[in-house]
């Protein structure tokens, strides 16, 4: 790790102002992804702002839905009775991710902000436009089994690793923030993560210093909540692909897919096609997919996993 100075923030706005004022500053919450990357010198902050003592660790009822503090731990969010009862897909997604030890430290906002696990991002001997803009993409001609099949660019084919974010996408969550001047805004989860384009190093819609205070969920929509994750091990592995589904009794509903793109992937036409079955829905979802020999399997796997989710919904 490179040396860094350290301080504990006293309020969200102060944290945002300090992060914006000090070049090289970063927020730290659970630290489970940031410290991993700092040890590899992929992240090299010169100043860390600890945001754990800001009282943002509560889950409250708001506007018929829930307001989840940015610092709520993954374990606590998954175990919350209201989440388990009304937003089961979110509990399921969280519990499918990481290990018990990591979920005890990882936070809600930190989970959204985690970086890709693309092996070319992690290997500092190889080019990566995300790690070193303009250096090229080692993954394009490389091993791509884990990598994206849709929404990619010639600069980056990385996937977003979060399970939680896929469930939040299907639940139409909103990300609440505060900026260095104290201005607040709410960003729909659909617009929060970006596609890589020419600037894969810019991963979210957040402005410099802008600080996440909470994630809100709208009022419960009922239906069957399903999260199916396909991975190389039965536990503690990143998804090859995952499907978050909320399916109503009449067969209508919503689906979001993980492991296929730079962000949780959801398409309105696929939701509309869900009543016509998995083939119709996945055709809409992955229209225009650009596969490579190593990851072409993801396209039929998405269709089959949606089929399994729909079967589970009927059971």
């Amino acid at each position: 790790m490179k040396p860094f100075t350290y301080e504990r923030a006293k309020s969200p706005q102060e944290a945002a102002a300090k992060a914006a004022a000090k070049p090289g500053a970063k927020f730290i919450a659970g630290g489970t992804n940031l410290l991993d990357l700092m040890k590899l010198q992929i992240e090299t902050p010169t100043h860390l702002i600890d945001v754990n003592d800001l009282g943002l660790d509560k889950i409250e009822e708001a506007d018929g839905g829930l307001r989840i503090g940015a610092l709520v731990l993954n374990t606590d969010l998954a175990a919350d009775q209201r989440v388990r009862k009304d937003y089961g897909v979110l509990s399921r997604a969280l519990l499918a991710g990481a290990s018990g030890q990591l979920r005890n430290k990882a936070t809600t906002a930190g989970n959204l902000l985690q970086r890709t696990r693309c092996p070319y991002f992690y290997d500092t001997n190889l080019p990566c436009n995300k790690r070193k803009p303009g250096s090229g993409c080692g993954a394009l001609g490389g091993y791509s089994r884990q990598l994206a099949v849709i929404g990619t660019s010639d600069a980056c084919i990385a996937t977003h690793p979060s399970d939680m974010a896929v469930a939040m996408r299907v639940l139409d969550a909103q990300v609440e923030t505060i900026d260095p001047k104290g201005a607040k805004r709410s960003i729909p989860i659909a617009d929060f993560h970006r596609l890589p384009g020419d600037t894969p190093q810019v991963e979210t819609a957040l402005a410099p210093g802008e600080f996440i205070t909470a994630v809100t969920l709208p009022a419960p929509v009922g239906g069957r909540h399903i999260y199916r994750k396909v991975r190389d091990r039965a536990s503690y592995a990143f998804a090859l692909i995952s499907v978050a589904a909320v399916v109503q009794e009449d067969g209508s509903g919503a689906i979001a897919v993980g492991g296929v793109a730079h962000k949780p992937w959801r398409v309105a036409a696929a939701d509309a096609a869900l009543v016509n079955g998995a083939k119709a829905a996945s055709g809409q979802l992955l229209a225009g997919a650009k596969t490579r020999p190593d990851n072409a399997f993801k396209v039929p796997l998405v269709e089959r996993t949606i089929a399994a989710a729909l079967a589970e919904a009927k059971a």
Partner: peptide, 21 residues
């Protein structure tokens, strides 16, 4: 944080002590 050999219990919860300052 991949192997768990560093697991300790902090305030009643198990964590990876290698991924915590």
């Amino acid at each position: 944080g991949q192997c768990g050999a560093c697991t300790v219990i902090v305030n009643g919860r198990r964590i990876n002590s290698c991924l915590s300052l």
